[in-house]
Each structure stands twice: as C-alpha cells, then as structure tokens.
Amino acid sequence: MQAVYRRSSVLIALAVILVLIMADHLQSPTFAFNMGRGNVETTLMQQDSTACAPCGAPCPSARE
C-alpha cells in the first residue's frame, strides 16, 4: 500500500510533542530534585485518598 502521509510531517509532529514534554519537565520540581536541589516538593505518587472522584473532586457532602 502506498503511504498516504509525509514522513517529515510525522517526524515534526513527534518532535513537537517531545519538545513540549521536555519543556514541561525541565521546569518541574522533579527535574530540580534530580539535579540536586533539595528544597523542592515533588509528587511522584499523585494520589489524594480524601477525594471523592478520580479527578480529585471533593464529596458533595463536604461542600458548603
């Protein structure tokens, strides 16, 4: 089957995603911690057991 895409488009799209991921990561507390800065709060296990939904929403009964 003849390819219906341009190879350069695929590479550019993936490169843009990688750049965005890296730009986000390089500014993060996790990266700062890995670089030896100790006074940052990292969140390797992002869980909130008090939340009432997977998105972190509070319980209806707890809302004022």
Partner: peptide, 10 residues
Amino acid sequence: MALADSVLVN
C-alpha cells in the same frame, strides 16, 4: 499536584 509537577510523573 499534577499541575505543579512534570507530566512524566502523572
């Protein structure tokens, strides 16, 4: 927490 840290730990 997720907003403050890297997408690589989400």
